[in-house]
Design a binder for these strands. Structure first.
Length: 403
DNA sequence: TCTGGGGTCCTAGGACCC
DNA sequence: TCTGGGGTCCTAGGACCC
């Protein structure tokens, strides 16, 4: 028997939100469709009477991207819409110029979460070591799964793809590689419905020609700085000495870049993790002024606190760092936070602390966004245990003083 | 007609403690 | 009197990701 090698898969659903919408509205198959914008429900947008099955709604009744007015970005676009240059995170107004005839649908997170759960269940039934990376992607450890080594993982990847499609009607792309970093890059190679298998020895031929930006963790800023230094591809990055990278990017980022460019990554697949913070934020329909729109702003602020509190309670967490975020009309943003003496999930307590934070921020300029965050989270159970320990400590200190 | 919402992690300075 | 060194917590901002 040959030596077993680590095989990690990255699975990414193809245009996930848009594909879920196409299951509901198959008549839109092949058309440019974008998801994003308003908070309106599908029912009020498209079929207020709800007299027809959704798949019978004529295409002419769907709202057009060009008719949309207001703020917001594209969350996902169908492949037909991407042909026009539309992509995720693009402003809706810019997208409307590129493809005015695109149809537009509002986001429906409840529906996407339902399909997210369904495809993840398919995966864990086949390969139990799965790391959740959000609603539409996961890492899977193929190393010890029966068949996980055949053709470097290709056979198992194909089985998972097929089973997900049978269960949900959705397609996905999979990259399989010796580690997460390479698997993530590989899953993009043959999108959509693609499989790409990478071996350690493929580094120079298949990874080094790629742009640095393809490394998960190198964003627009780092990419721009690399360009300034004359580095465009991962191969060029790999040629740089470790000490040179550390000089320009610091010991942590520099060392990480050096390893990444050489295809090295030993991060494990993490099955469970606890959240660090829970937050709610909202961008206003129009900019609001702290004085002129005091009442409206106050109501929104209180509602955000109530929503965060409800999220905490529903998920069973309490936090002791309460923070706010705001964004001015010129898009600058500031944050303030305050760590309290004990953990809470109470809306009034959060509202009070958040109010104190708000007082520490300049409010001359109009605002476009307000957010409330609770951090330093503990599960309700752990918080109780910590509280008991603290009480014991106090008792211990008291005893110490007495004797 | 610019630029959502929910996250994580890192850095860096200051406070405070030993 | 002129001054260490480490560890941890808190706060603010920023990069990055989905």
């Amino acid at each position: 028997m040959s030596e077993k090698i680590r095989r990690i898969a990255h699975l990414d659903m193809d245009a996930f939100y848009a594909s879920v919408e196409l299951l509901r509205y198959p008549q839109l198959q092949g058309l440019p469709v974008v998801i994003g914008g308003g908070r309106r429900s599908v029912d009020e947008t498209i079929d207020p009477a709800q007299e027809r099955p959704l798949h019978k709604i004529p295409i002419s009744e769907f709202p057009l991207l060009k008719d949309y007015t207001g703020r917001g970005v594209i969350t996902t676009a169908t492949y037909a819409a991407r042909q026009f240059g539309i992509g995720s995170a693009m402003g809706l107004m810019k997208a409307a110029k590129l493809c005015p005839q695109a149809l537009m649908l509002p986001v429906d997170f409840a529906q996407y979460r339902k399909y997210s759960k369904a495809f993840k269940t398919v995966i864990t039934d086949i390969a139990p070591l799965m790391e959740d990376r959000g609603v539409d992607e996961v890492y899977i450890d193929f190393t010890d799964v029966p068949g996980g080594q055949r053709e470097g993982g290709r056979v198992l990847a194909r089985l998972i793809q097929k089973t997900i499609f049978e269960a949900t009607g959705l397609t996905c792309s999979v990259g399989v590689a010796p580690n997460k970093l390479l698997a993530k890059m590989a899953s993009e190679f043959n999108k959509p419905k693609g499989i790409a298998v990478i071996y350690a020895e493929d580094l120079q031929s298949r990874i080094w020609p790629l742009a640095c930006r393809k490394i998960n963790g190198i964003g627009p800023k780092a990419d721009e700085k690399l360009r300034q230094l004359g580095i465009q591809t991962i191969g060029e990055l790999a040629q740089k000495e470790l000490h040179w990278l550390i000089e320009h990017f610091g010991p942590s980022t520099g060392a990480w870049m050096h390893r990444a460019a050489n295809g090295q990554d030993d991060r494990p697949v993490v099955l469970e993790s606890e959240p660090v913070s829970i937050s709610r934020e909202t961008t206003f329909e129009r900019d609001l002024h702290a004085v002129r729109d005091k009442a409206e702003l106050g109501a929104i602020f209180t509602r955000l606190c109530e929503q965060v509190a409800a999220d905490l309670q529903r998920k069973g967490y309490v936090g002791k760092t309460i923070g706010i975020k705001l964004r001015y009309s010129d898009f600058r943003s500031v944050t303030r936070d305050l760590t309290g003496p004990s953990h809470t999930d109470n809306a009034q307590t959060i509202r009070h602390s958040a109010g104190l934070c708000l007082k520490r921020v300049p409010l001359k300029q109009a605002l476009r966004l307000l957010g409330v965050r609770v951090g330093s989270l503990l599960t309700v159970n752990n918080a109780r245990a910590v509280e008991r320990l603290r009480t014991d400590d106090n008792l211990h200190d008291t005893m110490g003083q007495l004797f």
